[in-house]
């Protein structure tokens, strides 16, 4: 088709918006890699921070982030997958319950992260933790009713629940209906069909969802400010009730509270780079697994 000048104008204008976004992204990544990469070393990744927060490394923050994400996954993923199975395999599309669940999932995805922080504090720490303390101990010193890696992980598990549900649901949908019909026709029960046919075939897609949820959860800071992240804790958390250092929170603390911001700059960029590499590699992994599982379903 022949383009007129107005066509070129529209293409140009819309193209510029793309260029602006790509430019910003390039500057962002460029700055972080440029300033961050020289800082990365074996010591930086494996040592504890010094008392000034700037010297030394960020190992406790890496460890804390991974530990927290692991707990979050264990707590949240099974629930998310079960919900998705229910929605795709059991509920009829007109079921009122399914409709309500769907609305709830959509809304949960839109709840601001800071509100999750309030929730973690009000529900997990004060209500659940506080009740546990009241039941188990006489002392007034809280044992469970205080910020800890457990409560932070559970809060994030709730936050990432919608991600798991939606991606799993889509993964389950890609399993052809014929598979289910064939299985049922052979006399398998619905549960056997789900368990032996649908889930194995959707494995790649589900894994993708889990990884995306992990990547999302690993980078969230606002919800854990009051729920368990510590400024400075050169020791690794060993107990569910310990507080922990976190890469994202470390970035926040360094950028706003370190004694000498200019001296902190390299460490700061290094920490940001580590955090980005962590989340990006998870995202990349998700993309690869997704592409593979789709290819295998198609063939």
């Amino acid at each position: 088709m022949r383009y007129t000048s107005k066509d070129w104008l529209l293409a140009g204008l819309t193209g510029v918006s793309l260029a602006v976004i790509l430019l910003l992204l390039a500057v962002l990544l460029g700055q972080i890699v440029w300033h961050g990469a020289p800082v990365i070393s074996a010591e930086f990744l494996s040592q504890s921070p010094g008392a000034d927060m700037v010297s030394g490394g960020i190992w406790p923050a890496i460890y804390g982030t991974v530990f927290m994400t692991l707990l979050m996954t264990i707590a949240g993923v099974p629930v998310g997958i079960a919900t998705a199975i229910y929605l795709t395999e059991y509920a009829s599309p007109r079921s009122r319950i399914a409709k309500i669940v769907r609305i709830a999932v959509n809304n949960l995805a839109g709840v601001p992260s800071i509100v999750f922080g309030l929730f973690g504090l009000g529900f997990f720490i004060i209500f659940v933790g506080g009740s546990m303390d009241a039941l188990l101990y006489d002392d007034t010193t809280p044992v469970w009713g205080k910020p800890s890696i457990l409560w932070a992980s559970l809060t994030l598990a709730v936050l990432t629940l919608p991600v798991v549900i939606v991606t799993t649901e889509e993964a389950l949908r890609t399993v052809p209906q014929e598979f289910r019909d064939a299985s049922l026709a052979l006399g398998a029960t619905r549960f056997q069909t789900v368990y032996k046919i649908v889930l194995p075939n959707a494995r790649g897609g589900i894994l993708t969802g889990v990884i995306l949820a992990v990547s999302r959860g690993a980078g969230e800071v606002a919800p854990i400010i009051f729920c368990g992240a510590a400024n400075f804790l050169p020791y690794l958390p060993t107990d569910l009730r310990d507080m922990f250092m976190h890469l994202g929170y470390h970035v926040y603390a360094l950028a706003t509270q370190s004694p000498n911001v200019d001296a902190a700059r390299p460490t700061l960029f290094g920490t940001v780079l580590v955090l980005l590499v962590l989340t990006f590699s998870l995202n990349l992994l998700a993309v690869i697994i997704r592409a593979r599982s789709r290819a295998s379903l198609r063939s």
Partner: peptide, 10 residues
């Protein structure tokens, strides 16, 4: 209002 003295200095 900045969250730390360091931020103020900066």
């Amino acid at each position: 209002t900045l969250p730390g003295t360091a931020a103020v200095i900066n």
